[in-house]
Amino acid sequence: MHRRLSSRPARSLASALATGTLLTCAACSGDGGRAGGDSASDVVASPLAADSPLASPHRSAAPALTEAGAKAALITEADLEDNWNQVKSAADWGDRLSIGKVDVAALLTAKANAADCQRLLDALYDDDLLGKPSGASALTGFEQSESRLLYQVAAYDRARLGASLNWLKTLPVKCDQFTATDSKGGHRTVQVIENPVPSVGDARQGLQVTVTGTGGTEPTTLTLELAVVRVGTDAITVTSGGLAGTESDTTQLAVRQGTTHLKDVLAGKTPPAQPGNQD
């Protein structure tokens, strides 16, 4: 269960989707176990970063992200198309999904890659795909039918952020397909492929993770899209999907809009209100 707004987005998303047989099975298991690298409100935008509470009052080439800035950089319903509804309870989406432990013997790629695959599962479960934020962070969530989207903005240690992006880039090869088991011996197949991310920010990486298992009469599949974009020492993370698949257009739109918002905040501006979001 979440205790802070900025924590556990991927676990919350996957857990909140636990409405099918796969997820119900995982919920009952009680398991404890989770393209790019580091290349380097209608409010008129303030002309000076020093005049804005959203970024550090000290002028520099790399202003620090504040808590207020992280919240201002979040996307809203107006940034997304279709019928996505923003929810206030995203930080409390349940903790019921536990994917399990990597079956090393069944790993298709080198057995040495099992540690990386387990790290991915643990990161999805504990919501620290990029490691723990070193500074400000904020989270929001949206839902549409059985699909959910979580969006996070956070500040990170630059070296660790770069290393995390480089690690994510290796996963489609190291963990292309493997088996995970729960505490009751249930099996589910996990597949990881690279997913396109809009060419925004300083570095980026996208993945698609599919988890298929049999908890009833027919296989159930949970599909998640993960998109990460680095802007300086800050990053946005989008996790979206559900039992009915993913909506790549929405994920990419969230990435584009979110990156623009974050850049505005770091420049000392307030992201403009979007049409339809002025109540």
Rank of each mutant, 00 (worst) to 15 (best):
L97E: 10
K88V: 12
A244E: 09
E81T: 14
R188F: 00
A180D: 12
L161A: 00
D249I: 08
S39P: 13
L121V: 14
V238E: 04
D128P: 00
D31E: 11
P219W: 06
R230W: 02
E77A: 15
T221V: 04
S60R: 04
D202Q: 09
V255R: 06
F142R: 05
A16K: 01
S134V: 07
R59G: 11
P57L: 05
A55I: 10
A18N: 03
A78F: 01
V211P: 00
V153N: 08
I236G: 14
A14Q: 11
N85D: 10
G201T: 09
V211R: 00
S29V: 07
A106Q: 13
T179G: 01
I236E: 07
L107H: 05
I236Y: 04
L13S: 03
Y151M: 07
R148P: 05
S52N: 11
L149T: 11
T212S: 09
N85G: 08
Q274F: 08
R158W: 01
G131E: 15
S12P: 06
D128Y: 10
G69H: 05
N83A: 15
K132Q: 14
A106L: 11
T246C: 02
T212P: 09
V104N: 07
A123P: 05
W93R: 02
A154E: 05
D264M: 13
N277T: 11
T270A: 12
Q257C: 00
D116N: 10
P9H: 02
Y125D: 15
N83G: 07
T21D: 15
A115C: 01
Q144W: 12
T76E: 14
P133Y: 08
V190A: 07
L121R: 10
R256F: 03
V173S: 13
G100Q: 11
E218P: 00
G131K: 15
P9D: 03
T140H: 03
K88W: 10
L165Q: 14
L129Q: 04
T217F: 12
W167H: 11
K174G: 04
G141C: 06
L226Q: 10
A114H: 06
V209T: 01
E194K: 12
V192K: 00
G36Q: 13
A91Q: 11
V228L: 10
A227F: 10
T76K: 14
A40R: 12
T251Y: 03
A254K: 02
A235I: 00
K269M: 10
L13W: 01
G141V: 05
L107I: 07
F178D: 07
C117N: 09
A138E: 04
D234K: 13
G135S: 02
L107K: 02
E67A: 13
G141Q: 05
S134A: 14
R256E: 13
R160Y: 08
R158G: 03
F142V: 09
S134M: 08
P57D: 05
S98F: 04
G215L: 00
V228W: 04
K174D: 14
L17M: 12
V211H: 00
D176T: 14
L5W: 03
L17Y: 03
T189V: 15
D127W: 03
L97K: 04
L207N: 01
V44M: 04
H58M: 08
R204P: 02
V197N: 10
V228R: 03
A180Y: 09
T260W: 10
A273W: 02
A115W: 02
E146C: 00
R188T: 02
T217R: 11
S7G: 10
H2Q: 12
A203M: 07
P271R: 05
L80R: 03
T270M: 05
T170P: 01
P47E: 09
